[in-house]
Design a binder for these strands. Structure first.
Lengths: 221, 221
DNA sequence: GGTTCAAAAATTGGCGCCAAAATGTTTGCA
DNA sequence: TGCAAACATTTTGGCGCCAATTTTTGAACC
């Protein structure tokens, strides 16, 4: 609305990506251009551009003369993406601990608390966005901006949290607890602990105490 | 190549990306749509779509009402991208060694030899493509397809090898030697050595013998 | 001779229309 | 009543034109 082509199109891509991530469009849904231009009040051309960009990002798939549909990742892909995230985010831990300051910890506590509050009072979408906010704040402690970009893209490409990961209330609450554990590990400058928690958090697996610290990705499938 | 729009557009993106990587369009060059549609004999619309996709990939930058120009990465970004590649490719080493077979080693030797031959007889573009072929063959030993995708994308986003990395003949020859060293390390199942060579190869730094084995990314800037 | 302003050429970018393809529906026939 | 074929509607996708903006060229003036 403000300027001409790029910010509009870019935010349209972001909006659509967020809606897909948040589960507004479930995997397999055919995205009809007419519906999209009404929903986002955008022009046909902008919708098509956004669709193309999302196809490049692998969020949707394009079938010529048929349309675009939301791409459902199979388990193998989802698992592989999680493994890549684990590699990158655990590799970022050292630099995060090197660079963290007290204000960062305060911010993170606020964001983690906000997420926990929204488990009770908020909508799924609010929870989703609060979760993203926490993780972005955490990740940007890493000075490597490109690493942050790659992880952000991977998170967007992975299966949407509300749809597939937060299946139960208990699982969401567990995520909230893990956020706080991460902050504690950060405050204690305990890189090993942070890596362990992050790995379990991303993989959505139970924290195994006997697990090795280093997150070797070994067999990925 | 069979159906209508997508493969055409996709290959156009690939062609333009390769030309940018190979240094046909130097950083800063304004990509005029008319020239592009003549060079690739594509329609105006396909050119614009490809340009948009390349902008999303950060290979070109878009200035509204002015056009698209080849994006020159600053040193910090280039260094950060290299660091991310080091993290991912060294993390892949274990699974590569787990999965390697004799035919893989043979293929790699052929590709490495081909690269070395082309140092003398081939054009820059041939060298560039032979190098890519070797690295892709090596990387796809890793069973994590998504990791391969991310690294491939990162390689395409980084500074083009002919333009900025292979400044001297000596440097190219050193790269060729390092390829062979990687194969030797693979054959010996020596993960540490392979990680060390890979790190130096990606960062284009001299192999420091006293360097620690584990490639901590620490300070990235 | 240099600078500034204006007109012209070139380039980008948006919008709409229409054809091709696919889907859904109705109708006719066995 | 069930199936199939033709028709109608919907949707995608390509093409072209023209407006808006920028760059370049040229000329006049200081």
């Amino acid at each position: 609305m403000t300027s001409k082509t790029d910010p509009v199109s870019e935010s349209l891509v972001d909006m659509m990506a967020r809606d897909i991530q948040a589960g507004v469009f479930t995997p397999g849904t055919w995205l009809k251009q007419i519906d999209l231009e009404k929903r986002y009040s955008a022009t046909r051309m902008d919708v098509r551009r956004a669709l193309d960009q999302l196809a490049l990002k692998r969020l949707v798939r394009h079938v010529p003369n048929k349309g675009y549909h939301v791409h459902a990742l199979d388990d193998r892909q989802a698992s592989e993406i999680r493994d890549v995230r684990v590699i990158l985010e655990t590799a970022a831990v050292d630099s995060m601990i090197d660079n963290i300051r007290d204000t960062d910890l305060e911010d993170l506590r606020k964001l983690a608390t906000r997420f926990n509050d929204l488990i009770l009072t908020g909508t799924i979408l609010e929870q989703y966005e609060a979760n993203i906010a926490f993780h972005m704040r955490l990740l940007t402690l890493c000075p490597n901006q490109e690493l942050v970009n790659v992880v952000t893209e991977l998170r967007g490409r992975g299966p949407s949290a509300p749809a597939s990961q937060w299946k139960t209330r208990a699982r969401v609450e567990q995520s909230g607890r893990e956020h706080l554990m991460m902050i504690d590990a950060l405050e204690a400058r305990d890189a090993s602990a942070l890596r362990r928690i992050l790995t379990a958090h991303i993989r959505q697996t139970a924290l195994a105490e006997s697990l090795e610290v280093q997150p070797s990705q070994r067999k990925s499938g």
